[in-house]
Design a protein around this nucleic acid. Structure first.
Length: 564
RNA sequence: GGCCCCUUCAUCUAAUGGUUAGGAUACGGCCCUUUCAAGGCCGCGAUACGGGUUCGAGUCCCGUAGGGGUCACCA
């Protein structure tokens, strides 16, 4: 159950002989749609940390590709040189691999439709733009950025119903345009949108969507630096890469009329457009890093398991039969149908992910969890201050998120510091963690929470105060008595037989606390503080066994001495 | 503001036009208990509103309201 392996072979055999059908409306009878292998893509731009929305799209892309025996393509949309971030591409690969959503084709992977970076495909876009101009379907626009800015300002001031480019250069004669170009004036290429009538588009979930042509504007295809805009690049590449389904976020819906016109102008066959709902902040606005962690690296650093995050993401907009909420990718795939996705806007609820992650951790075989913990410690080791923290000045205001992040920072650093020692000890004694795992795993929801329980097994230098030993309704004297009594019990126990020892410790402490007229909890409180340095800890007797008799006695003596 | 999309518990969601509107998270309570958890049981809690169509509407239609997205030489 641990593996949750991806893109398994179970998808084979699902394909049928039914010919592919163009979807004909919302919830169209669709099973047969999957008969033809789908080619899908995710197209992030390398402008920062890999985004949770990218993972969300990738999940459904991956699923459709796997379900139909198709291919999932990663394309890097690096056409904006001003926003380019050098290492972000690498991080995207890493994040997708971490989530088990690696592409079949893409930079570094290869594939027969490469290159998969748009910056390496510039001639293609130029060619397409030239073709459009030559056919009179696009034109060169020499308007300056200043003019456009002024135009926008006026439109805003006038509260115009229509914003956007006014089409000034559309009226330029060929001679005028040639003259400007010859004079060295910079220009962009704009697509000629129809001026009247309706533009009919189609969305897999929503069916036919009509837009008034008069509301459209002549969008830029090619920028003055020779790079394409998203619109042109997308059309050219999706066509060249034989993409069959464009699964993208709903924010693209308003530009679909432009895309339909563009596809027609280029003479391309239209893919299926499926606009997925936007992931939301708690206040329903589209997910943003000011209000929510959006970096996939944050989730990794916070100790979420990739399979849990993936499961959680699949819950956003999709639901399994029989109310099943926890499922493997294979199970998901078995039930997956793209047209079953909801279009309602789901709020990304970290609290539920937190719960789900806990479920996953507990479902992992102990040795697998151990492996994950060690990997996680390695990940945080030598990190110094390079944690994927949310920016200091913009902690989310939402309570659970904020509290989690505050604690997580401390935990990440605690584990990062503990990591070298942990790794060394682990290497010399590979059996070190095995007995600890069962004690801590049902207390954790994320790997980072190991920071709350693990350190006591590696250090006995605690920063407690005498007050920490005093129990509710008890005195310091009571605490000292408990410690003395328990020390004797521990001393008398035979640690060589763990099971017997625990029984012995348990029975003796019960008897003693009763004899002393104390509740067991109060009796053990000071002991817990002495042994673990905390009021909250894994089960006490089991912890003692892990520590060994000598260490246990030493800690009790330390505390007794400390209290005087 | 124009255009577009969306609307079942606080949140994620289920419900061939016929259910006491189901499940999960969160929250509250009880049980278990050695602290904290985990687990078990119970509880709280929704069809945005108004009109139609229909014997019957969460489900179909129209309107209203609310929310969101978008209107860049960013994607």
């Amino acid at each position: 159950m641990c593996g949750l392996r991806l893109h398994g072979s179970i998808v084979q055999g699902i394909a049928t002989e039914t010919p592919a059908r163009y979807p004909c409306g919302p919830k169209s009878p669709g099973a047969s749609m999957h008969s033809k292998p789908a080619r899908v893509r995710v197209a992030p731009s390398p402008t920062g940390d890999p985004h949770v929305g990218t993972a969300y799209m990738s999940l459904f892309d991956r699923a459709l590709a796997d379900k139909t025996g198709g291919k999932f393509v990663l394309r890097i949309e690096d056409t904006d040189r001003t926003r380019y971030v050098a290492d972000s591409e690498q991080k995207i690969f890493e994040a997708l691999a971490w989530l088990g959503l690696s592409p079949d084709e893409g930079p570094g992977v290869g594939g027969e439709y490469g290159p998969y970076r748009q910056s390496e495909r510039l001639p293609l876009y130029k060619e397409a733009a030239d073709k459009l101009c030559a056919a009179g379907k696009a034109y060169k626009c020499f308007c300056t950025a200043e003019r456009l800015a002024t135009l926008r300002k006026i439109q805003q001031a006038e509260k115009a119903s229509r914003f956007g480019y006014d089409g000034l250069c559309r009226g330029l004669s060929a001679e005028e345009a040639a003259a400007k170009e010859a004079a060295g004036e910079e220009y962009v290429v704009r697509l000629k949108m129809p001026r009247e009538g309706e533009i009919e588009t189609r969305d897999l979930f929503r069916g036919v969507l009509k837009f008034d042509a008069a509301d459209q504007q002549d969008a830029v295809m090619l920028k003055s630096d020779g790079f394409p805009t998203y619109h042109l690049a997308m059309a050219v590449d999706d066509n060249a890469m034989k993409i069959t389904h464009v699964i993208r976020a709903e924010e693209w819906l308003p530009s679909t009329p432009l895309h339909f016109v563009l596809y027609e102008a280029l003479g391309y066959e239209l893919p299926v457009f499926a606009h997925m709902p936007l992931l939301r902040n708690k206040d329903k606005s589209k997910i943003s890093k000011r209000k929510n962690p959006t970096s996939l690296l944050w989730y990794r650093d916070a100790g979420f398991l990739p399979e849990a995050l993936r499961n959680f993401l699949s819950l956003m907009g999709f639901s399994m039969p029989n109310d099943q909420e926890i499922f493997t990718y294979e199970e998901f795939l078995r039930e997956f149908e793209l047209e079953k996705v909801n279009t309602g806007a789901p709020i990304f609820d970290l609290q539920k992910l937190h719960w789900l992650n806990g479920e996953y951790m507990r479902a992992l075989p102990p040795d697998e969890l151990e492996k994950r913990l060690v990997e996680y410690a390695k990940l945080l080791m030598h990190r110094e201050k390079e944690f994927a923290d949310l920016p200091e000045d913009q902690l989310p205001t939402e309570q659970f998120l904020r509290e989690f992040e505050v604690k997580r920072r401390v935990r990440s650093r605690t584990l990062g510091q503990l990591a070298p020692e942990l790794m060394t000890s682990y290497e010399t004694n590979p059996k070190l963690l095995a007995p600890i795992i069962p004690l801590i795993r049902e207390r954790m929801h994320t790997l980072s929470e190991a920071a709350d329980y693990l350190p006591m097994f590696f250090t006995n230098r605690f920063e407690y105060t005498p007050d920490d030993f005093v129990q509710k309704k008890g005195t310091l004297e009571d605490a000292k008595k408990s410690l003395a009594a328990m020390r004797a019990i521990v001393d008398a126990a035979d640690f060589n037989d763990p099971e017997a020892a625990i029984r012995q410790l348990d029975e003796a402490s019960r008897a003693k606390s009763e004899e002393m007229g104390m509740k067991l909890g109060s009796f053990l409180g000071p002991v817990r503080m002495a042994i673990t340095g905390s009021k909250v800890s894994p089960p006490l007797m089991e912890s003692m066994l892990v520590l060994g008799k000598e260490e246990t006695l030493k800690r009790m003596d330390n505390a007794i001495k400390f209290l005087g």
